[in-house]
Structure formats: C-alpha cells, structure tokens
Design a binder for these strands. Sequence first.
RNA 1: GGAGAAGUACCCAAGUGGUUAAGGGGCUCCCCUGCUAAGGGAGUAGAUCGUGAAGAACGGUGCGAGGGUUCAAGUCCCUCCUUCUCCGCCA
Length: 421
Amino acid sequence: MIDLKFLCDNLDYVKEAINRRSGSYDVDAVYGLNQRRKSIIVEVEELKARRNSVSADIARLKKEKKDADALIVEMREAGERIKALDAELSQVEQELNSALLSIPNIPHGSVPKGKSDADNVQIRYFGEPTGFSFEPKPHWEIGEKLGILDSASAAKIAGARFTVYRGLGAALERAVVNFMLDTHTLHGYTEVFTPFMVNRESMIGTGQLPKFEEDMFAVRGTNYYLIPTAEVPVTNLLRGEILDESELPIYYCAYSACFRAEAGSAGRDTRGLIRQHQFNKVELVKFCKPEGSYEELEKMMRDAERILQLLSLPYRVSLLCTSDLGFSSAKTYDIEVWMPSYGKYVEISSCSNFESYQARRANIKYRPASGEKPQFVHTLNGSGLAVGRTVAAILENFQNADGTVTVPEVLRKNIGADVIK
RNA sequence: GGAGAAGUACCCAAGUGGUUAAGGGGCUCCCCUGCUAAGGGAGUAGAUCGUGAAGAACGGUGCGAGGGUUCAAGUCCCUCCUUCUCCGCCA
C-alpha cells in the first residue's frame, strides 16, 4: 500500500500519478476516511487519558481506605463511551484500510505513459527469431510425439491445465531448475526452499489477498493457500522484521511449484506448457535500501537474462507502460522469449521494483546505521525464470526436422543426453 | 490424534487485579587501570498512532494473536497460533 501520510499531504500529486494508470481510483475517499479516523482518535484518546489518571486516583483512595464510588460510577460511563468510540474507530479503520489497499502503487517517473501493451517500450533484443528450413511444430506436439509430455494422463489424474512429464522430459524440467538455481547462487543469491502452502496473513502481506482471491487455490478446511509464486513465502520470510542496515541488500532465489486457478482465462493457451494450474518457477527476490533500488532492478534483470543467454534462447526485454504495470509495482520489465509456434515473443519473466509498497504492507523495515528511525525497505522480485515456459521454448527453438530436439549445451551433462529422440 | 507445560526487551528471567513492567547477562557511554581481563558509575520495553512546524513536548496503544470480564488486566475467562515433554501413528 502507499504511504497514507504522503497521500494526505500530497493529494493532488497522488491523484495525478495514480491516474496515469488504467482504471480509476478513489483517492479522495481515503483522505476523507482518514479525517474521520483522526477526529475519533482525538476524542477517544482524551477519554482514555482521563481514565488512566482517574484509575490511579481510585487505586490511591482504596489504599487509603477512602470512598471511591463516585469516581467508579463516572468511569463506568466513560468506559461505555470509550467502548462505543473504539468500535466506531475500528470500523472506520477497516474501511480506510480496504480503501487504501485498493490504491495501486505510484508509477516511477521513468515508466512510459500508455493505453495498452502496444505502448510498452522495447529495450533490447538478444538473438533473432529462430529460423527453420521446415515447418516448426508447437512444443506440445513435439513433446507428445517424443513421449515426454503427456496431457492425456494429466487430464485423467487431475484435469485440464496439467501436464505429466516422462523420461527425458521430466529430466529436462529438473535439469532446468537446477541450472537456474546453480547460476543464481553463483551470482550472489542465497537459495531458499519454502513451503508451497502459506497462511492468509502471508497472502495479504504480498498483496494476493484480499483482491485476487478467485485466482488462488485454497486448501479446504484449513487456513492455507497454495502459493501462486515463491514471491509470497520468500518475501514473507521477513514480514514484521526490522533488519539491520548491515544485512542489506538480501538476495534470495527459490525454486517452487506455483499454483494458479487461472479464473477468467478459459480458452487461452489451452494446449501445452504455457498456462498451467501448476508450474515450476525459480524466483529472485531482493530486499534493499531505498537508494539504489533501481540499480538493483537493472542488475536483477541481467541475472534473469543470463539464463536465456546461456541457453541460447532468443528474447527481448520490454519496459511496461503505465497501463500494463502490475498493481503493486512501480516499474516492471518483462523478458519475453521467442516462441516459434506463437510466432511471437512470450513472457517468461517479469522483474519489478515495488519500492516500499509491499514492505509497508508486510511491515519490513531496516534500521539505518545513523541511528535514525526504522524505514521501510524496498522489495524487488523477478522470475528467473518460469521453468515450464523455458522447457517449451527449448523444445520449440531447438527442434529438428526429424522431430528430435537438440539439448542446449549447458544442460547436456545434467541430462546425460545430447538429443531427445 | 491424546495428555501436560510454556510464550514478558537482543538473551535469561521476576511479576496471580491497583500510581512508575523487578533483577541479571549483553550492548552503548563514562571513570579507574602499562595493555587485556577484572572493578565502579550511568543508560538501555522495541515499535507504532494522535495533537504538533518538529526526531521537542504531551497523550493513546503495546507482556505470542484476537476477543471478553472490570472503574482498572502481564495478572481472571474464552478462542486461536507457536514451542517443548510424554504417548500413539507415520514418509
């Protein structure tokens, strides 16, 4: 969430900045609710201060064995009033909180203004769309033919939007996970392995709830949700903590399975590995001081790109415009890999700087060495990368005319094969 | 799953209804001292919210979380979470 005080002190600026995004947001409602909240606080706190001092008086009188009945009666009435005001206050705070949670992050000044994804800005390209001397097949056909991807079995045991990997397919998926983790840990990230289920507080901490409930899988009869990305458990590792400045920056990388209900995407990408209810991903998460968080974003993007470079997969990087920007993000780069069957670039990583938006929500702070008050850290995360889509890109870009697939060089030792046939 | 115990500051820990949440370790500063160790003194309940120009001052909240009882709750009651011990089950 954005800073309530900042919003109230800079109402016009915030309105202007938020409205560069698509959609409209009621910033004035937040301001009004906060005014109400403050006026209730003034009244109730005055009463509480009085109650505290009178309670001390009563204690003294009782000790001296004197009569305190009049004060007790007075305080009984004050207590009723306090109770009523507290109830009203918590009601207003709840409304304020949900109004505030519905306000997206303020886009960074370098984010281009735009009306649709057509206004995203291409930053750079690596390689060129793969050329073929034959008609390239989509990865699901390649996979089925080689016997390494099996959607029929997945449909039987689970349903649509699942895949069973077999043989070298399963080995390829596993090798890609290991390759990504090994590469990132080599470049300063600490590997963490977390639960794939988290409680509701964590889902709220990173912003999946309460707004996107229908996109999540909940575990019936429990307080648990299946994570839609490792961003959730990894960011929440530090929820409610005050870090020492010397601990920053913190770089984590994490493999996890990810679970998404994909409500509202019926009919889209129904075949293959692109849009599954369960997929694997290696996630990069950074916690850092506010100054320098944008350099950290650039570095994180390079770390994600490195994977595609080492795999020799063609990709491009684009800077998302204001209308395409995610709700919590101040600035996002997408990395898109070339997917021959789609004839276009497909998102394989999204790297964002949330500034203090997530940290405020999850209450993650650091104590400056100067001894100043604790401040919110900046959080960043990015896929490094989506594993299923990487495997799909490998199958498509490295396919041969005879239906076999050449294994990218960096993975060969891992799999123990040069070609999948 | 069953039975029991516990959760107070950076750590250990006292505190079973009444003005100010003991004490110790550690840490910070000071004194003493060839150096170090030891010793002496002072400080140290984090945070957060409100009034406010203010990081001043004053006030509210805050003893695992959330409710309740009471004029008044760390203390009494209820629910939940976590940790530990024992039993059962189990990859």
